[in-house]
């Protein structure tokens, strides 16, 4: 039990003393999660909207595939992205292996099914009277799509929060594609894994608490944003 108390004290110490190693991991974590979230939201929201809004042949099959991908293991994504980015791989020439951009590609793949599936669910659960109401007020096709997207905003925000939670806490992709290189690609989760393997439990707990603090701050800002909408 001493580890926990020690860890909490250590967490404060690391943050207050601006421990460079900790802040480097925080920076790497924030950078990589921002890249991956930007990409997954930019691609996932339009795809999820289309999946939820339109009726097309094979829609149920696409939905089943997306739902299955929600259970994609991070180590499998790590393996596939590693295979793609390694020097012998098809994208090897871009030199993305063991870089934050490489990790972001893997994390975007991880977040994409979550964003697509939850956005589609949010759009599907819009009241069927919304369409009738909008048409009866005289919208054109573009205004109809835009307003439906805006009406589903709370569901889409939930999709973003869920995806961010998964991206922030994953370790498989960061470890395999990023390589856990100190000052460079070491994120908070890979640092925790390393500290634990070294037997430095207090340090691991401290970093875990820092990670939770980041998650809390992100969720608080989203909650504020939700109130403003």
């Amino acid at each position: 039990m001493g580890y926990i108390t020690e860890g909490i004290i250590k967490a404060f110490e690391l943050l207050i003393t601006f421990d460079p190693e900790t802040y480097s991991a925080i920076e790497a974590t924030l950078k990589v999660s921002s890249y991956s979230m930007a990409a997954s939201l930019a691609i996932g929201i339009p795809l999820g909207f289309c999946l939820g809004f339109y009726e097309f042949p094979g829609k149920r099959s696409v939905r089943t595939i997306v739902d299955t991908l929600l259970a994609l293991p991070t180590v499998l994504i790590g393996l596939l992205v590693y295979a793609l980015l390694t020097q012998k791989g098809p994208l090897g020439k871009y030199g993305l292996l063991f870089t934050l951009k490489g990790v972001a590609i893997g994390q975007a793949i991880l977040a994409l099914p979550i964003v697509i599936a939850l956005t589609a669910t949010a759009v599907e659960s819009l009241d069927r009277n919304l369409r009738i109401t909008l048409l009866s007020l005289g919208v054109n096709r573009f205004q109809l799509l835009l307003t439906c997207l805006w009406e589903a905003r709370f569901g889409i925000l939930t999709a973003a929060v869920a995806a961010y939670g998964r991206v922030l806490t994953e370790v498989g992709i960061s470890l395999m594609v990023g390589g856990n290189i100190k000052w460079h690609t070491r994120t908070i989760t890979t640092a925790i894994a390393l500290e634990t393997s070294k037997g430095q439990f207090a340090m691991g707990i401290a970093l875990g608490l820092v990670l939770l603090t980041i998650a809390l701050l992100v969720n608080l800002s989203l909650s504020f944003l939700r109130k403003r909408c």
């Binding site: 009241d127 009277n129 919304l130 009738i132 109401t133 048409l135 009866s136 007020l137 005289g138 307003t147 009406e151 905003r153 709370f154």
Partner: peptide, 16 residues
């Protein structure tokens, strides 16, 4: 012309 006609459906619905 759809902008000159307005329907109030059976179940009223308001935007959020």
């Amino acid at each position: 012309v759809s902008r000159k006609i307005s329907l109030l459906p059976q179940q009223p619905f308001l935007l959020k």
